[in-house]
Design a protein around this nucleic acid. Structure first.
Lengths: 192, 192
DNA sequence: GTCTATAAGTAGATAGAC
DNA sequence: GTCTATCTACTTATAGAC
């Protein structure tokens, strides 16, 4: 296994993240990364033997990043938690031409290896469970299945908004979606 | 220009559509298509000189298909229109491993040529405008900008649901999203 | 009009140099 | 431990055969 804290490795990962988020998993190569950091493409294979390894490393870091954020919101009021969560997507949209790591990988789902597919599913399961919990805190009468559906719809709304914000060059779509998210969560006859 | 009504051309387009929807624009090639229809990859270049041409043909057909559907709903009640529209996405999800043409191309946006990017934007503009019109029919007091925001959020919800339905292997997500769509459209304090 | 031979460049990966 | 020479297969595209 390559050194987990190598500077070069981190540098490659950073570039991988940017390329994944702008172009997609199937539209960048070891060669692109090699050019960016100034080595030969085969050097990149030392740090990441297969392309799947790059995807797995990116997802592991992203999962850590997002779940840490959610954990850090524990002592905030629920509406603020949702705002903070949505702001992660809003800041991704503000970068102009980037989607989020998980959303982009989800779009490339059919071309990923089994391990990466499983990691991606686990990520969405965790985030949607968290959203379901927030929904139940807002509306205590909500059944667990209904809350989970609400969590899934919320995630879909945010991912879709970021996708279209990028395509339509309207970063503000994501913050508008955050408002729609609260509308979905807080009110209306949403029945499981 | 190649013959617009060639059988071979249509056959290639059909396979292109399926490959685009499952794998994405950057994960299939003229070669894949050639194998599927039983010719050499260079033959496919006769019908579609560049890959961008395949994307443009797919979008043109898809745009036609969806806008025709929307037009055909003119004499139906508004809630039924929304159901019919959502059912397009639901049937895409039921195919198991496919996203929709426009959603997938949106995910590959940064790698597309300018013409295809423009075509994609025009498509979403048209559909979202239609959704905004439906929103104003349901809620006559809604301002035009607020209605448009609602249309954009609705589209985001459906695209995101289909993306995640595919990834999480839960086709029913899209029909659940259709319910959430009506909740968004029909009720709640959604303010621009 | 339809299709193929051919080619320049790229993707992903291996074996091995330093 | 770090990196490169090298390889096979693939991608896109052109020129030209039938």
């Amino acid at each position: 296994m390559p050194p987990p804290t190598s500077d070069r490795r981190s540098e490659i990962l950073e570039h991988s993240k940017a390329l994944l988020r702008t172009r997609g998993f199937n539209a960048f190569s070891h060669r692109d990364l090699a050019t960016l950091v100034g080595v030969k493409s085969s050097s990149v294979h030392y740090y990441f033997p297969s392309k799947e390894d790059i995807g797995l490393a990116l997802m592991a870091a992203y999962r850590q990043e997002i779940l840490s954020l959610l954990a850090s919101l524990e002592h905030r009021p629920v509406p603020e938690r949702l705002e903070q969560f949505a702001s992660v997507f809003a800041s991704a949209a503000s970068s102009g031409d980037q989607w989020c790591v998980a959303g982009m990988l989800a779009s490339d789902y059919a071309t990923l290896g089994e391990d990466l597919q499983a990691e991606l599913r686990r990520f969405f399961d965790a985030v949607e469970a968290w959203l379901a919990t927030q929904a139940q805190l807002i509306r205590p009468g909500l059944s667990a299945p209904a809350a989970l559906q609400l969590g899934k719809a919320s995630m879909a709304l945010l991912e879709g908004s970021l996708l279209l914000a990028r395509c339509q060059q309207e970063p503000q779509r994501v913050s508008h979606a955050a408002k729609a998210l609260k509308a979905l969560m807080g009110v209306g006859p949403f029945s499981g």
